[in-house]
């Protein structure tokens, strides 16, 4: 639950449909799988996306320390000082222009080094009133679509005052409509969002 945006990191590369940001440190509250995030686009709107992957790569130095029994200071040095950013992948699901939430892709992606922040509860509630973004997620095979959609719905439910029960029931009905011909997939998704 967040009333104010949290800074996640800066955009490293971007395209219309997805973008990648770099973060120096993983913190307890960011980045979270399935979180709603936003970054400014060069044409003035805010690009809305869902975090679908967090990748922490190794390097030869880290590999040498994997099996070593070393003091905490060395681990902190590697985690906090070395410039090996974790990369966070974001699937674009819509944008916000002049205060209006639009569940389709923005005209332009965010620019390199733009700052990515988490959406506030109010923004998440307004964006998820329209379920049109479900299709974007379900049709993104590389983004673990079922897990991602379920996680985003749980976040959206948490953002609501009443715990989002009624919201989840509505979302479940929409999923039943979209996946009417794939009962197995639908069942898996409904299990993941069951209140």
């Amino acid at each position: 639950m967040s009333e104010s945006p949290l800074r996640v990191g800066r955009v490293m590369r971007s395209s219309t449909g997805e973008f990648t940001i770099g973060v120096r440190l993983l913190q307890a509250d960011v980045p979270h799988f399935g979180s709603f995030v936003k970054a400014p686009s060069t044409d003035g709107c805010d690009v809305i996306g869902l975090i679908y992957d967090v990748l922490i790569e190794d390097d030869p130095f880290v590999r040498q320390l994997i099996g070593a029994d070393v003091q905490d200071e060395y681990i902190r040095d590697q985690r906090e000082n070395r410039q090996v950013p974790a990369t966070v992948s974001v699937l674009v699901v819509g944008h916000c222009r002049d205060g209006r939430m639009l569940p389709h892709l923005p005209p332009q992606p965010p620019a390199v080094l733009d700052t990515l922040v988490t959406c506030t509860d109010g923004e998440i509630i307004r964006f998820t009133e329209d379920f049109a973004y479900f299709r974007t997620v379900l049709n993104a095979p590389d983004a673990r679509p079922d897990e991602l959609l379920a996680a985003s719905l749980r976040h959206a439910a948490e953002a609501r005052q009443d715990g989002g029960r009624e919201f989840l029931v509505r979302a479940g009905r929409e999923l039943a409509r979209l996946l009417a011909f794939d009962a197995v997939r639908l069942e898996g998704l409904l299990k993941r969002i069951r209140p």
């Binding site: 003091q71 905490d72 200071e73 060395y74 902190r76 040095d77 906090e80 000082n81």
Partner: peptide, 14 residues
């Protein structure tokens, strides 16, 4: 340069 304060639990200063 780097200063490793071993035994302090602090993050080294690079």
């Amino acid at each position: 340069s780097i200063a490793l304060r071993l035994g302090s639990g602090e993050t080294p200063r690079a």
